[in-house]
Amino acid sequence: MHMADALISPVVGLSMWVISAGSIAYCSKKVKEEADDRKVPLMGVLGAFIFAAQMINFSIPATGSSGHLGGGMILTILLGPFAAFLVMASVLTVQALFFGDGGLLALGCNIFNLGIFPCFLAYPFIYRKIAGNKLSKGRIITGSIIGATVALELGAFGVVLETVSSKISELPFDTFVLLMQPIHLAIGVVEGVVTAAVVMFVWNARPELLNAVSRYEPVGRINMRKVFVGLLIAAAITGGALSWFASSRPDGLEWAMFKTSGKEVLENNGGVHASLAAIQEKTAFLPGYGFKKEEREIGIETAARPSWPAAHQGTSTAGLVGGGLTLLLIVLAGLGLRRRAKTVK
């Protein structure tokens, strides 16, 4: 569920950047204050771990959708919110730079959606409140599941808000929300179960590791080994009953998009076409465009008669000719530069 540059407006992109950059600066300061040398390599390899773990998919039964570990909750439980946020941000940055997942401008949105919610909302207000100081068997699993679910729901809602307010995509808010939220509810529950199970797995195998790691986040002051073993069994039973399959099916978000568009096809077929006002609104988005005035006329014309006479074609032809020519010039420039680069060598 990565936002993409292609879908956001500069206002949305830049404001999210500011929020995320501010959070990075704040967390960097906090991590520095913690002054735990061990965290330097630990954060790095845990980021790599999350990345590697994300390569393994499992499918969500009965939806035809698949998800992977987001990892936000696990990181927060292992590292505390500040370090975990930096790790999430670094994972997303590398994804944006190397894999084009999202993009540089959308990076702010992605860090916000996938970092801030788990680290600064779900962890302190849900996980910690539930897991609390009086740890019990059910608390950790409840905390993980509710925490991860809420984090993902908020993240998904963030995607909806950012997409809709950017106005690049035509998706209507209500339909988008209605499809995104339930799907991410499912993904969130799965994420929570996996988080709980993995944390308990580690606890069970090497309790001292988690003790050392969570020194700064005293999750485990009380003897939690039994708790974790019990939870591991519970999770194994729950999970075993569900049984996941690794798959290459579309990601939850993309699936939601498909559904929305499918529904929209139906609505639009029976519905009335958009009004003149809508068209004018569109033309307002076309500063300095050659065929701007033409469109305004199109609006009027389409209302009157559906077919368009060839009379006003002047500007759009000019646009096409000019576009083709520009493209040609760019290609030629590219080839010329390439030849020069080769001869220089």
Binding site: S169, P172, S261, N268, A274, K282, E294, H312
Partner: peptide
């Protein structure tokens, strides 16, 4: 994927070629 249904939702004729 996100873009593909723009044509589906927004069907107003805009330009004629």
């Amino acid at each position: 994927l996100l873009g593909i249904f723009n044509p589906v939702i927004d069907r107003e004729t805009m330009v004629h070629i």
